[in-house]
Amino acid sequence: MFEPLSTAQRARSDSLDAVRRVLATIPDPEIPVISIVDLGIVRGVEWEGDAPLITVTPTYSGCPATDVIMADIGRALTEAGFAKHRVEIRLAPAWTTDWITAGARARLAGFGIAPPGAGAVATARVIDTSALHRRVVRAPVRCPRCGSAHTRELSRFGSTPCKAQHRCEDCLEPFDYFKPH
């Protein structure tokens, strides 16, 4: 039996939508073309008594951007009239680049960062020591500028923990690659 929402219920649900809209405007501090919602780290928005509870999961455990993101959430929600709120960090399930939205992947490429392949991450990992050997060939990473698949890894880490440095062998441009995680 479908019960229509009461006015109060509708107001509460509208407010959560408003909170979600505010969160969607907060850019990732290190990759400003995508929001923290695009990045997939906002795991929940709900009511806790009379205040919104926002659940966030970190990308990498040591990522220094996490503290900045927390501060940004607090500031943005306060400015939007949600001074009373709580942000909770949740570790499980662990963040994966599979949660980055399709739109955000396109914007990453436009920004010069090769996006991680979708579905590239196995969810249940078993020890696979073959990955320790160099004969393992990974799918080529495409250059975000010219689209060439003729690229080379320069270093397994780039400007942030979530990226690696690659270079295009055709247009010769170095670029960041958002690692599948």
């Binding site: 455990s61 040591g62 990522c63 923990p161």
Partner: peptide
């Protein structure tokens, strides 16, 4: 940095 983050947890 990863290890430091893990140590903190």
């Amino acid at each position: 940095l990863d290890l430091l983050g893990q140590a903190r947890l």
